[in-house]
């Protein structure tokens, strides 16, 4: 479990993640705010497997979430804003499983 260390700065920002309300500091990234709140699964990848932040520096693309209706935003590269609505990023839906042509 991730937890904050020692002295607590102000957490004046609130954001939504799915049904959860989360408090955040003014300069938190969305990823940091979610991780601090104990959320590890941010999205579902190609094979429908859950993923979460890996590199925290914008190079792995595993922290993708939907932010205020816009899909595939990198949570580790986005600073929180009061009232932000964040949702898990689902894997794209193939028309039928067979049509996801994998050799």
């Amino acid at each position: 479990m991730f937890r904050p260390i020692a002295t607590q700065p102000d957490r004046p920002i609130t954001i939504q993640f799915e049904s959860q309300t989360i408090e955040a500091s003014r300069d938190d990234t969305v990823a940091a705010a979610l991780l601090r709140a104990g959320i590890l699964q941010f999205r579902y990848a190609t094979a429908q497997e859950p993923r979460g932040p890996f590199c925290m520096m914008g190079t792995c693309f595993d922290c993708l979430v939907e932010i205020d209706g816009k899909p595939n935003r990198q949570a580790c590269q986005t600073i929180v804003r009061n009232g932000m609505v964040v949702r898990q990023q689902p894997a794209p839906v193939a028309a039928t499983p067979d049509e996801r042509a994998k050799p």
Binding site: F2, P4, I5, T29, R36, P53, M56
Partner: peptide, 21 residues
């Protein structure tokens, strides 16, 4: 690729940026 697995750099970034460990 499991959630909860990160790079050490990622863990350090979280520490520096958000004082979260």
């Amino acid at each position: 690729t499991l959630p909860g697995v990160m790079t050490v750099g990622g863990a350090q970034t979280l520490l520096k940026q958000a004082a979260v460990g």
